[in-house]
Design a protein around this nucleic acid. Structure first.
Lengths: 324, 324
DNA sequence: GATGTTCATGCAACCGTTTGCAATCCCCCT
DNA sequence: AGGGGGATTGCAAACGGTTGCATGAACATC
């Protein structure tokens, strides 16, 4: 059996309420008594039961973190940073993977609601309406989404996309395919918008193709469509799509960047190794910022605003001079 | 305020205990009453409070999952599989990252102990003694470790290592460097052992170098030592190390696999894209198996044994014929 | 010496749910 | 008619903490 506050009280000859205060309201108990209590607690190996504490305080000390696909290398650095940051204020982070399914996402948020103080939705696929509805049950902060009234952390992919197109333009590319991602993804909308704008400004022909699955399979599946457009370069929704496309192109005997330039988005670990030119997303910073917003939201009732983080192009070897 | 069992009881005109039973012991309540209760619960949007339930049942419905570095691509597939599998039996998984620090690992296990029914330790860095001690507080299952008396899932890296050395031998390599990992890692011990055996059997010279950090930095840092040995091929502790080494070698103007062959371990997502020859680790299967063991351990008091999973070499392009 | 303050502690209710026990009702059997 | 037994439900005590209120001691104030 686990040792409880009662055992500690008995061992140190005080009432349970004094033990409780010794831990959570030090200034209300005599320093000598407190020392005695802490010593007893230590000797017995007492650890407060968070579930029990949650019952009276309505604070679990846990935070939820919901992602679409933990195996997508975009997420782990964000998760890691968020966890480390949350630990500093003695909060645990509960990570859940929705497998890109909105049904699962909703269910997870609902069933988390009772055991966390708040949750982070990273690149959610849910509709804004549903997110707003769920936020009545549990304080929510979103990353890469902009639902009315909710605190959000945004990675401004627009600036990165502009830089990417300028980069390709500088290499002489004039006809570019854009592999789009899930329609409900805010990032994807930003990307489409910003790319269209920049293409127009630079006099590029931009051909959107999609929506594609945000995975390697999605990229590979789009290869034929890309080739059919006659574009000389591709901007992909994310690194996974870019890498899937590259692999498929190479297996068809094409050369990247020789025959076709490819630029990704995310700057994942994998991109660094595969020499992929890509747009860097500040995932770790976003994770920390989101935790900050969430904790503020939970402790003070006011709803903090929106944090926007910059992105920028990282030039590597997957895009070069336009052929011909 | 959240809706509780009391509200449901009031709305459906029964006692709270009946509501409770309607949810958790259906056979004890009249079907018609039950239907009425469920309807009321549904109308009010009632969701049981898991923390409160945990208090009386001593079951939280949560499982812990502790990894050294969530950003190491080895882990996410395991985490994902474990989570999906646990969800089927209505369990949530609490993932925590120790940052490769044993102090943090111990602290995390301790503070998780009260809020989970059991925990999975994946490739722990803790000593066997400490793991045994902690397992008194909370049921533990380990992956890639073999502490006395604890259920474990092992990925038999030995068979993969043998295949890797045979593969290199077949390409004419006769002098091979082995980049070792953390000393407390069971996988590393297996790898060293199996490699030495296989090398002896095949008549290879095997030169261990390490311990190295199990990261790209670790691999890059070992480049000079590797070159100093005069080996023509390298077997690395994991893919990260292998990729870090390759990157460093290439930046020094060397060709991989031309000048030096490199083989990794893990078969991560990144390895697939970087054309790295590597030993496949069945991470998803291990995640599922570990959850099964843990749930069995929790529900029945007996301690199930050990599950061993096979590994095998995946041949790609980072190792070829020996030079000369 | 009566009164007021402050500090430290105990008491008991409460958080939301489960569960052993007791009470009631209905049905069947002799 | 009386009694046994199963089904259904209510009652109340936990589970491990927190917290508003009451109590009492020590001390200062006038």
């Amino acid at each position: 059996m686990a040792v409880t506050i009662k055992d500690v009280a008995h061992a140190s000859g005080v009432h349970v309420s004094t033990v409780s205060r010794a831990f959570s309201a030090a200034h209300l108990v005599n320093p000598r008594t407190r020392a005695r209590v802490l010593a007893a607690a230590d000797a017995l190996g007492y650890r407060p039961n968070r579930a029990a504490r949650a019952l009276s305080t309505r604070r679990t000390g846990n935070l939820g973190l919901i992602v679409a696909d933990i195996a997508n290398p975009f997420f782990p650095p964000l998760i890691k940073a968020a966890q480390a940051h949350a630990r500093r204020s003695d909060h645990h982070v509960f990570v859940a993977d929705t497998d890109e399914q909105t049904r699962v996402e909703e269910e997870l948020i609902r069933s988390m609601a009772t055991q966390v103080d708040g949750a982070l939705l990273v690149a959610p696929r849910l509709s804004n309406r549903l997110i707003a509805e769920l936020s009545a049950d549990v304080p929510l902060v979103v990353v890469n989404r902009r639902p009315a009234g909710l605190p959000a952390v945004l990675m401004d992919v627009a600036s990165g996309a502009r830089q990417a197109l300028e980069h390709l333009h500088g290499f002489g590319h004039r006809h570019i395919a854009l592999l789009t991602g899930p329609r409900t993804s805010w990032t994807n909308q930003q990307l489409e918008h910003a790319s269209a704008d920049a293409a127009h400004r630079l006099g590029l022909r931009l051909r959107p193709i999609g929506p594609n699955q945000p995975t390697e399979e999605g990229g590979a599946a789009a290869a034929s469509d890309v080739l059919a457009t006659g574009a000389t370069a591709v901007l992909a929704y994310n690194d996974l799509v870019a890498l899937g496309l590259i692999q498929e192109l190479r297996s068809r005997g094409l050369d990247v960047p020789g025959d076709l330039g490819v630029v990704g988005v995310d700057n994942t670990h994998t991109a660094r190794h595969c020499s992929l030119t890509t747009v860097d997303m500040p995932t770790a910073a976003a994770g920390r910022a989101a935790i900050d917003l969430l904790l503020r939201r939970i402790t003070t009732e006011d709803s903090p605003g929106t944090v926007t983080l910059d992105t920028h192009l990282v030039v590597r070897g997957s895009a070069g001079p336009a052929p011909g």
